[in-house]
């Protein structure tokens, strides 16, 4: 049971890190954003995991519930907010990527950097 009790956290940590790795190491801008979503999704799992109560139910009063145990509603509220923040960031990031593609005709960071370097040299 000791192992099971931490399994959720460990998976969350590993997911977090695979997303984080994609953000740092990948050079494709869309892939970076996908990594960022993965990174954030793992944090959602971390929060929701700590809100679970053994033998509890979703925190909604039903007619039959006199002596119910509820799971913690607060992390759920926080994560609802965080999910919305996440999709907002992704949408804005994608708009920037689309504009980048139109201006540079590539979405690979290395190629963009190369073009920028040439431009910097040309302007000096």
């Amino acid at each position: 049971m000791e192992f099971l009790g931490l399994y959720n956290y460990w998976i969350a940590v590993v997911l977090l890190m695979s997303g984080f790795y994609a953000v740092i190491a990948k050079r494709n801008l869309v892939k970076k954003l996908i990594g960022l979503s993965l990174f954030q999704a793992a944090v959602f799992l971390l929060y929701i995991t700590m809100g679970k109560v053994e033998g509890g139910t979703a925190p909604i009063f039903t007619s039959a519930s006199a002596e119910q145990i509820f799971s913690n509603p607060l992390p759920q509220v926080l994560i609802l907010t965080a999910i919305v923040v996440g999709i907002s960031t992704t949408a804005l990031g994608l708009a920037i990527v689309v504009r980048t593609k139109e201006e540079y005709s590539t979405i690979e960071e290395d190629e963009i950097q190369q073009m920028d370097c040439q431009e910097n040299v040309a302007s000096e």
Binding site: E2, G5, L6, T49, V53, G55, G56, N72, L74
Partner: peptide
């Protein structure tokens, strides 16, 4: 960390 589902965890 408190274990999953632990009702005595500080969050609860």
């Amino acid at each position: 960390s408190p274990r999953l589902g632990d009702i005595d965890a500080p969050v609860h």
